[in-house]
Amino acid sequence: MDSIAGDIRSTIFDTLRTSLGKPVELSDQTNIINDLGLDSVAVMDFVMEIEDRLDISVPLDRIAEVETIGDLVATVRDLKGGI
């Protein structure tokens, strides 16, 4: 794991815990819809928080491909590019 992915992962964990408002067990394998009970709009709203924190925009088709937190880390890592 590179350090940028690690930073992204902790940002995602942190944002998810804040928006869920309760302590949850999170890992790369956590399924965002099935395990966390978010609906499609709640997922997009949560991604918006990540976008703000990391100053990126995640296109909707990329969000649609995301199932697990690990997927989201990879997508965000890709969008951050070489930064």
Partner: peptide, 21 residues
């Protein structure tokens, strides 16, 4: 806009543009 009607979301998905909200 994030609160757009379903027809705006669906219309956007029907095309090939990159969509953000």
């Amino acid at each position: 806009d994030a609160d757009s009607h379903a027809s705006i979301y669906d219309g956007s998905h029907l095309g090939h543009a990159q969509v953000t909200r």
